[in-house]
Design a protein around this nucleic acid. Structure first.
Length: 439
RNA sequence: GUGGGCGUAGCUCAGUUGGUUAGAGCACCUGACUGUGGCUCAGGGGGCCGGGGGUUCAAAUCCCCUCGCUCACCCCA
């Protein structure tokens, strides 16, 4: 097949990317750190399907959101009502919680997840069509300590990763009782100034007024700067919840900023919302976002109970880490970025094609002893095999030629010292193991 | 969906006002006395210069279209 054809038909779809061997180090560091921190805080892994009934997302995320209106990968699956590749994972976790009636035996549960999500949008820095999130959900309690816990867990994760400069922004967006009232107040104010608001904000006024608050347009900011603060309009319940969060965060020495204009694009949020941002990312600087969603469980058919959690973008977090390399210690850099390719301890070199069978048998017998071994599969010259062994940075090369086969031996070469030892085949494994231990 | 930037070897890039068979570094492969790495040296493979059309005696180079990548906007992690 010509190269032209390969380029034309076989390319990774837009907005997806391959992680090639050798590029996995950062991924692993991020995922392993997340697991460690989440499990330390009592969260257990849950894996849900990457696709769900479309209605789950429509009902949870909200019909008049961009995600549902234009960013979902939705398709027919037989005569079902439609299947959608998950654009986020909170709804799936709640669905599982409700579907298995987990709340009947143990109402309070903590879960975490790590996995791919799908949103059909134009890719850009740190944002892909298939991207990955890691997140936690604490379901079944209203205690604002859990809101604080979510933030603390996220910050601990970034701290353990070695990412400097994260900022926590928090706000409360109220609940069913108080938010509608604030919406009205806000809308009234904005309508008076509608000619000073951008076109987009004028449509936002009808779709989701709160979003006008975080418009980046300078003129819109001027208008929203003098608009009433939502915290003066939230009910007693929301207020005490928010105060509880602030109390715990302060006592836990977590630096935070209250952002009265911080809102969320997904409908299910209530009370606490928060974001963790990183300055290296510019305008689109959120690496982690979350909050409380007290109606979500009941909305999809479960009991009335609170829930809180966050989702952290893996690609966005990795980008922040890459951007921060210059501020990292050597050991952090090594842990996050040093490429670890498969590196066998031993490479078997065959002298002549007729010895390759014996080499293969030795390779596998040494592997059976727990030694990491590889050999040449291309029937190349001894010199070429040695070159490969050198590039692999193996500790030993085991040479097998006709002499060795005749005598039942193996010639073992130490690649650092160039010393060669002729050993009985049966003793090779033991010999290598001993030397590798002393290395 | 809207706008900007960019598409030359596997990778990073040169390519002068359009002018012969398109280059470098790295990587890869082979060899330097017949069973052996690193250093050096000598060779070698590999590009329809993203694709299509146009201008011209002549296009990687100029013009148009298209595709792809990328960054930003909308939105979101």
């Amino acid at each position: 097949m010509s190269k032209k054809n390969v380029a034309k038909i076989l390319k990774a779809p837009r907005g997806t990317e391959d992680v090639l061997p050798g590029d996995w180090q950062l991924w692993r560091a991020v995922e392993e750190t997340a697991r460690e921190v989440f499990e330390l805080a009592g969260y257990y892994e849950i894996r849900t399907p990457v696709f769900e009934d479309t209605n789950l997302f429509v009902r949870s995320i909200g019909e008049v959101t961009d995600i549902v209106e234009k960013e979902m990968y939705t398709f027919k699956d037989g005569d079902s009502s439609g299947i959608t590749l998950r654009p986020e994972s909170t709804a799936s976790v709640m669905r599982a919680y409700v579907e298995y009636e987990i709340y009947k035996t143990k109402k309070f549960q903590k879960f975490y997840y790590i996995g791919p999500m799908f949103r059909k949008e134009r890719p850009q820095a740190g944002r892909l069509r298939q991207f990955h999130q890691m997140g936690i959900e604490a379901i079944g309690a209203d205690d604002p300590m859990l809101d604080a816990e979510a933030i603390i867990v996220a910050m601990r994760m970034y701290d353990k990763l070695g990412l400097p400069g994260c900022k926590v922004k928090i706000n409360s967006i109220g609940c069913k009782e108080c938010r509608p009232g604030y919406r009205e107040v806000l809308k009234e104010q904005l309508i008076k100034n509608s000619e000073n608001l951008c076109e987009l904000c004028n449509t936002r006024m009808n779709r989701n007024v709160l979003r006008v608050l975080d418009c980046k347009n300078e003129k819109c900011k001027e208008v929203t700067a003098v608009v009433p603060d939502i915290r003066e309009h939230i009910c007693e319940c929301c207020k005490s919840s928010f105060d509880g969060l602030i109390d715990i965060l302060s006592a836990s020495n977590i630096g935070y900023v209250i952002e009265p204009h911080l809102v969320r694009g997904l409908d299910y949020y209530t009370k606490t919302v928060f974001e963790i941002t990183h300055p290296s990312l510019g305008a689109r600087d959120t690496i982690c976002a979350g909050g409380r969603y007290d109606y979500l469980v009941s909305d999809i058919g479960g009991p009335e109970t609170g829930a809180v959690g966050f989702a952290a973008g893996i690609e966005a977090s990795m980008l922040a880490l890459k951007n921060s390399m210059s501020e990292m210690s050597d050991s952090t850099k090594q842990r996050l970025f040093d490429i670890k390719e498969p590196a066998p301890d031993v490479y078997i070199v065959s002298i002549g094609s007729e010895c390759r069978r014996a080499s293969f048998l030795l390779t596998n017998s040494l592997r059976g002893e727990g030694i990491s071994v590889d050999m040449d599969y291309e029937d190349r010259s001894p010199k070429a095999q040695m070159r490969t062994a050198n590039k692999l940075k193996v500790n030993f090369v085991a040479v097998i030629g006709q002499d060795e086969i005749d005598n039942g031996t193996v010639k073992l070469k130490n690649m650092q010292t160039s010393d060669e030892n002729v050993l009985e085949k049966a003793k090779v494994a033991e010999f290598i193991k001993k030397l590798l231990l002393n290395k």
